[in-house]
Nucleic acid binder design. Structure first.
Lengths: 197, 197
DNA sequence: TCATCAAGTTAGCAAACACTAACAAAGATA
DNA sequence: TATCTTTGTTAGTGTTTGCTAACTTGATGA
């Protein structure tokens, strides 16, 4: 998909955006950080915009394992749990992701780019929504609250946890804290027979 | 605090960032949108950075009513509810806020600016956290889950709802949807005697 | 009446921006 | 061996950036 050099460019771009913001993501900074000249970048990408497009594709690939946790034939509660934990796992291994992937603002300067970002976010949200509805049908999840509220609570608290971890300078153990969150979320949204699973 | 012209500059800046992203927030665009010349901006602010600082101060003032809902002598559940609803109310009246205030990325290019943003966010988070702990002590809120999980669920789902509303082009009724969210959240986090309040 | 002053204007600055032209070197292929 | 392709280089393009200098204008007040 991407050559080694292209991957290096993408990863360095993500790092720059995460640490210094989109406004400091310039071809000059990017080239210097990698250790090549500016025009060399254009041997691997047509333009700066194409690099940003590649970042989104790169995310899609990296986050795939998390979404796959929503498939399979285990129960809904377990699926949601694995979905959340895999998210945290991936972010933990790619700490720079957090400040880029959950900040649509970084891509807001270009309509098409923003559309691709929101599309990606909505896809995983819809898949989670379907699992939650099935879980409610199967009496695994509480049915006295809207499925939308459940997915908003799950994704919302997940995103907030990641944001807080990132903004704090990653001073706490994301995965450990995530496991606690998962346990509590299960208590909140699961029917009682699933509390102790 | 701010002169009329200053307010106009701040509000227009917010609008530009919300609609076209920080990257398109230039002195040229700002001046054109207002209908004055570029140098005229510098009669009211020392620099572009000072305008961004002013945006944060402006937010602080506008969001104050929401935080004040956490004070007073009603019960914790009601306080949290009013806090959430007032947030939605303010955002509903200032639709451009959503994409700026909840996107730390917009201020990431400058360390001091980012610090001020996170400080502001943490202040309201801490105040909410205190109310939640008190609510648990008073047996108004569930005590079998961590207070941090409750505040993350409340703030997380609130922020996600606002983000979704903003990204959808504000096609649904934010306040109505927020009221439903509030009801469901109360069912999730309140002890039973507070379900029907 | 006339100096003061706030708040606008036009013209233009140096630096930074994304990107290109032209050339060089090294490895693969014929 | 000779040529082509890939991937790098240096030098430089026109445009945009945030911001300044110098001038104007209309209201205020001693």
């Amino acid at each position: 998909m991407f050559s080694e050099r292209q991957q290096q460019i993408i990863e360095t771009a993500i790092k720059i955006i995460a640490v210094n913001g989109v406004q400091n993501f310039t071809t000059k900074n990017l080239a210097r950080e990698i250790g090549i000249s500016e025009p060399a970048l254009y041997r691997h990408f047509d333009s700066k915009l194409h690099i940003m497009e590649a970042i989104i594709k790169y995310f899609k690939n990296q986050m795939q394992p998390a979404i796959q946790k929503l498939q399979g034939n285990s129960n809904s509660v377990r699926k949601i749990e694995n979905f959340v934990l895999e998210h945290l796992n991936i972010i933990n291994q790619n700490p720079h992701f957090a400040r880029v992937i959950f900040s649509e603002a970084n891509f807001q300067f270009d309509e098409i780019l923003l559309l691709k970002m929101t599309k990606m976010m909505n896809q995983s949200l819809n898949k989670l929504g379907a699992i939650i509805q099935k879980g409610q049908k199967d009496n695994e999840l509480r049915s006295d609250i809207a499925s939308l509220t459940i997915s908003r609570s799950v994704i919302g608290s997940l995103r907030l946890l990641i944001t807080q971890w990132s903004m704090s300078g990653m001073i706490f153990d994301l995965v450990a804290e995530g496991r606690k969150l998962c346990e509590d979320l299960r208590k909140l949204i699961a029917e009682k027979q699933f509390f102790l699973q």
